[in-house]
């Protein structure tokens, strides 16, 4: 069942290649073929439901960003995963599919918000979780969990309170549980718990 769809797609779309997957069929699609492939998947292969749009940041590698789509066919009860590499590492961009699946609207906004990937043809591509002036893309690899200092979304409130968006005091975290060892010793913990925003982190 799983590979048949990929074979059939490969007959029509030269650039499509199978992609390693542990569960559902998955394929890679070149960025320029994606709009045509998406339309075909929806109209001819009955993938009427777009379950998820997200992305992967491969850090040092190039292409750096891969947009991942999860499609579901309500008729056939199967999923399909499509991965589209963004050609430009600096300003990643793919074509929006919000015209095909309306749900892509918000998903693409989230992917833009977190990774800075632009979706060409999106009706209103602005941030959805972070506020509009936020200068960073939090799920990119170079961005730390604690975040970087910047201004509060509201200038007046920032002036009145003196508050800023700060790098969160990690206090030795993030806390991770080791997989090995007896249960009693497997509590989540950070290496060094002494530092806070007031006591700077000791140099290693």
């Amino acid at each position: 069942m799983s590979e048949e769809i990929i074979v059939r797609l490969q007959e029509r779309f030269a650039g499509v290649t199978p992609r390693e997957s542990l569960d559902w069929p998955a394929l890679n699609c070149p960025v320029e073929q994606w709009p045509v492939l998406a339309a075909a998947l929806k109209d001819e292969f009955a993938y009427t439901f777009l379950a998820d749009v997200t992305a992967v940041d491969w850090n040092e590698a190039s292409p750096r960003f891969t947009v991942v789509y999860h499609l579901f066919s309500v008729q056939k009860h199967v999923y399909l995963r499509v991965a589209v590499d963004c050609p430009d590492d600096g300003e990643p961009e793919v074509t929006s599919v919000s015209g095909l699946w309306p749900t892509a609207d918000w998903h693409e906004r989230e992917t833009y918000d977190m990774f800075g990937i632009r979706f060409r043809g999106h009706p209103d591509l602005k941030r959805i979780l972070m506020w509009e002036d936020y200068p960073y893309f939090p799920l990119r690899k170079e961005f730390p969990l604690a975040g970087w200092e910047t201004d509060l979304p509201d200038r007046e409130v920032a002036a009145a309170t003196g508050a800023k968006v700060i790098g969160a005091p990690m206090m030795g975290g993030p806390f991770v549980a080791p997989h090995e060892g007896p249960m009693s010793e497997r509590e989540p913990r950070g290496g060094d718990e002494t530092w806070t925003e007031k006591n700077p982190k000791p140099k290693e």
Partner: peptide, 11 residues
């Protein structure tokens, strides 16, 4: 800020 030591939460 509780357990949310993160870029998005007021501490």
């Amino acid at each position: 800020g509780g357990m949310y030591r993160s870029y998005a939460v007021l501490q």
